[in-house]
């Protein structure tokens, strides 16, 4: 564990708490993509189910439990509790375009060996799927052209999590000679998807302006 990864994990955790707070206080899931949230549940379940047979540390296990349960809870809030506030007509990104390529890639590029095939394929599937899981949300943002400030804080914390993993990998390469090409390449792509969002967040939201996309 190093400071970058720890801050990244905290940022990830914070983003989820912000999202839950936003939905509960506004009693609405307006501006939130159900499809992105569904993808995160798939990502967390396929990656963190190893919680049952792998023990790394208490921190690791608790975080995995948190991510699985909180993402499921968010899905419940969106799909059941505040379902009337859901507007499927703007959340139109097609999920098979993301899930199928991630599944095919995971069958080709993975760390499977004789001992572990399924768990390794599931792990790489979750990494590939996570790298693009934000796309339905960004697509929704693009369609509406604006976002509530709280939603942009959520997205910023989520993007910061992935961005912080980059110095973590550089640090691990320098200190442990540890390189995980699947995680690194996917992570770089995932972070790059936030570039546009980060730009508007820093130039507008931080200065107290509303998040609006240029026409």
């Amino acid at each position: 564990m190093n400071i970058f990864r720890f801050l990244g994990d905290l940022s990830h955790l914070t983003s989820i708490l912000i999202l839950i707070h936003k939905i509960q206080t506004s009693r609405s899931c307006r501006g939130i993509s159900y499809k992105t949230q569904l993808l995160y549940v798939i990502v967390f379940v396929s990656r963190y189910l190893d919680l049952v047979w792998t023990y790394v540390s208490l921190y690791n296990s608790l975080m995995k439990l948190f991510f699985i349960s909180s993402s499921s809870y968010i899905l419940y809030l969106i799909k059941i509790r505040f379902r009337p506030t859901l507007d499927p007509s703007i959340d139109t990104f097609s999920l098979p375009y993301l899930i199928i390529p991630a599944a095919i890639l995971s069958l080709i590029f993975n760390y499977a060996d004789e001992k572990a095939w399924l768990s390794e394929v599931l792990w790489s599937f979750s990494i590939y799927l996570e790298s693009v899981a934000i796309l339905p949300q960004l697509f929704l943002l693009q369609r509406t052209g604006e976002a509530e400030t709280i939603t942009t804080h959520y997205l910023f914390a989520l993007g910061a999590y992935r961005a912080l993993y980059i110095p973590n990998w550089i640090y691990r390469y320098a200190t442990e000679s540890f390189v995980d090409p699947i995680a690194i390449i996917s992570g770089l792509i995932q972070t790059a998807l936030y570039a546009d969002f980060f730009y508007i967040y820093f130039t507008k939201v931080i200065r107290g302006q509303k998040f609006e996309l240029p026409a």
Binding site: D50, N60, M63, K64, Y111, D113, W123, Y165, F178, D180
Partner: peptide, 10 residues
């Protein structure tokens, strides 16, 4: 060695 310690990241 790769498989042994990669799973510590979330």
């Amino acid at each position: 060695p790769h498989n042994e310690h990669k799973k510590d990241e979330l």
